[in-house]
């Protein structure tokens, strides 16, 4: 039994006289202790999906099971108690502006009826975990974005949840702060064995910390697998688009536009032979490098390259076969990304 089971989930909204299908028959299993990424463009239904996991959004059809418990079968009170087992952080941090840091962290404990003194002890411990002990008495307005998110994380962990939901938790942060928050999440995942669900529109967040990923488009789950699988050989257009999301630099300038563009991915265990120059030598044909990058995918170094191939179809076919023989993952990219 998976820790989170989502079965045939459908959610519709009535807005301005017409119906928006935010989630369309979504099925998903998330295992205990993993960091699971859900990625999609804005409006794809990511927030609706993650809000269904703690039933902030009640689905029209389908079921959500947490540790085998069907949330639709719980009374209001039971659901509120269940929510203490599911922490949540947000893009906008959502801290109580009129309470200081420690009172923010104490808040979920206060709600659960814990004695103030005990709650404070627990809160201090958590502030240490997120490295913010010295800001105990500060108010949210006096903190940076990264610090606010750390407080939010401490607050989400206060009730010792076994699941942490993150809805675009780093989308409002700069790259350095994003990196530090992501590594904090990873640390928490390892130390506390908490299952983390990460919602994002940034592929880099997924490749940095997630073990598995689901891609959602127009409310439908279109692709799912380990991050490595999806990154190496994306099957859907949306996956390819998300992977090359940040690449304005990938759209080749006019003179470099090639008929056929392929994306190749090298892993650490790919041969260290100079493939590109070998291709050029062997086929005696020009190959344009339209873009190249390296990144860390689930702890493995990955290199990726976009190549523009010559027009001759036979030649294209041979080059692709040659690259595949060298254990590189090759995907054809739609014409001129």
């Amino acid at each position: 039994m998976s820790e989170i089971e989502i079965k045939n989930l459908t959610k519709k909204f009535e807005a301005g006289g017409h119906t928006v299908v935010a989630l369309d028959d979504v099925n998903l299993n998330i295992e205990k202790g993993e960091i699971y990424g859900i990625i999609g463009m804005s409006g794809a239904g990511k927030s609706t999906l993650v809000r269904s996991i703690n039933y902030l959004e009640v689905p029209n059809e389908g079921r959500v099971l947490i540790d085998g418990t069907d949330l639709s079968k719980l009374s209001d009170k039971e659901l509120r108690i269940k929510r203490r087992d599911i922490g949540m952080i947000f893009q906008g941090f959502n801290l109580l502006e009129q309470k200081n840091v420690i009172d923010n962290v104490c808040f979920p404990l206060e709600i659960s009826g814990m004695k103030k003194k005990k709650a404070r002890e627990k809160a201090r411990e958590l502030l240490e975990t997120v490295n913010l002990s010295e800001k105990e008495k500060s108010y949210p307005s006096q903190l940076s974005g990264g610090q606010k998110q750390r407080v939010a994380i401490a607050r989400a962990l206060a009730t010792n949840p076994s699941i942490l939901l993150c809805d675009e938790a780093t989308s409002a942060l700069d790259p350095q702060t994003t990196a530090s928050i992501l590594s904090l999440l990873k640390e928490i995942n390892e130390k506390l064995n908490i299952t983390i669900v990460v919602i994002t529109h940034q592929m880099s967040v997924i490749t940095d910390i997630c073990t598995r990923v689901a891609i959602i488009e127009n409310g439908k789950l279109v692709e799912e697998g380990t991050v490595e699988e999806v990154f190496d050989s994306p099957k859907t257009d949306i996956a390819r688009e998300l992977i090359s999301n940040k690449k304005e630099s990938y759209s080749p300038i006019e003179s470099l536009k090639a008929e056929k563009v392929i994306r190749i991915v090298f892993s650490e265990n790919s041969a260290f032979e100079p493939v590109i120059s070998n291709v050029i030598l062997k086929f005696n044909a020009p190959v344009n490098i339209l873009g190249a990058d390296t990144r860390d995918v689930g702890g493995k170094a990955k290199g990726e390259m976009l190549l523009g191939l010559p027009d001759d179809e036979q030649l294209q076919h041979d080059i692709i076969r040659y690259l595949k023989e060298r254990k590189l993952t090759v995907t054809e990219v739609r014409d001129n990304v």
Binding site: R83, M88, F90
Partner: peptide
């Protein structure tokens, strides 16, 4: 802020709380 209310709901707060 609706987000703060949402966060409280996610923590398991009742409407009265």
């Amino acid at each position: 802020d609706a987000g703060v209310i949402e966060a409280a709901r996610a923590m398991g707060a009742s409407n009265m709380q």
